[in-house]
Design a protein around this nucleic acid. Structure first.
Lengths: 134, 134
DNA sequence: ATTGGTGCAAATCCTTTGCAATAGC
DNA sequence: GCTATTGCAAAGGATTTGCACCAAT
């Protein structure tokens, strides 16, 4: 339990937009002055492995991190990539089908609500490109 | 409309595991002999932009492509990364809440069913690491 | 001749890793 | 002192891009 680990954990706790490793790094630099990006990556990996953080998947090619361990969904802005927590009652009611799907063993549902955040909607974000599902 | 574009499109149509750019490239090499990986990337981008294919997000750091344009969900194996289409009735019933979520303008639901495919379940895939939601 | 598509290699972005220096117990 | 952690720089994988060449109109 080092100062760096505390700093990374706090940075994720404080950034509700689900920061990327780089965003965490920048926040720490602005706040404490210095820290290696490699250490940020290692620490995020360490905290996620220890169950203190979650690595969440994004439609982009970067990992984002979430300190909210409770079951919930995410609002993902396709403009800026930021994510906010959201807890939609209707989605809680969805259950994983009891048994396996033709040999596939389901373990969890991964649900995102993709759209535009307020800021990006104003400036009209880029056109919808990466899609899945409905 | 060139021979390369046809080859890429057909490769995606024929691979139901939602191939990566690299997998498409390998399939074409095995089949036709030669084609530049850069062209595969450019063509996939072109086809996705034109609406003939979809780029689907994955929990990994690679893009996968889907020629099935109908609304559906995916079974994603966290062992090998392969995806299969799945159409779960219960998930079709989920509706996006009517209006915006505190300034966020929802556009679509992105739903994945994460688990282990038959092959990976046998060999017991790696432990569950990247998570989201429930 | 002109426009667009292709191949190759170099460049970019995000992330991980080897290794020596360092910190904490 | 020992072991785990850090920083730096280099390596890595996926993807994109600059540019010259080639093909079809």
């Amino acid at each position: 339990v080092t100062a760096q680990r505390v700093a990374v954990f706090r940075a994720v706790l404080q950034d509700l937009s689900h920061p990327t490793a780089d965003a965490v790094h920048r926040a720490i630099l602005a706040d404490l002055g210095s820290m290696s990006l490699a250490t940020v990556y290692r620490t995020l990996e360490f905290l996620a492995g220890g169950g203190l953080l979650r690595r969440v998947s994004t439609p982009e090619s970067v990992s984002r991190f979430d300190a909210n361990l409770a079951p919930h969904q995410h609002l993902v802005c396709r403009g800026c990539g930021r994510m906010r927590d959201w807890d939609e009652a209707a989605l809680h009611r969805v259950r994983l089908p009891r048994r396996s799907f033709a040999g596939f063993r389901p373990e969890m549902l991964d649900i995102r609500i993709v759209g535009l955040c307020e800021g990006c909607a104003r400036g009209a974000g880029p056109p919808l490109t990466r899609t899945t599902g409905r």
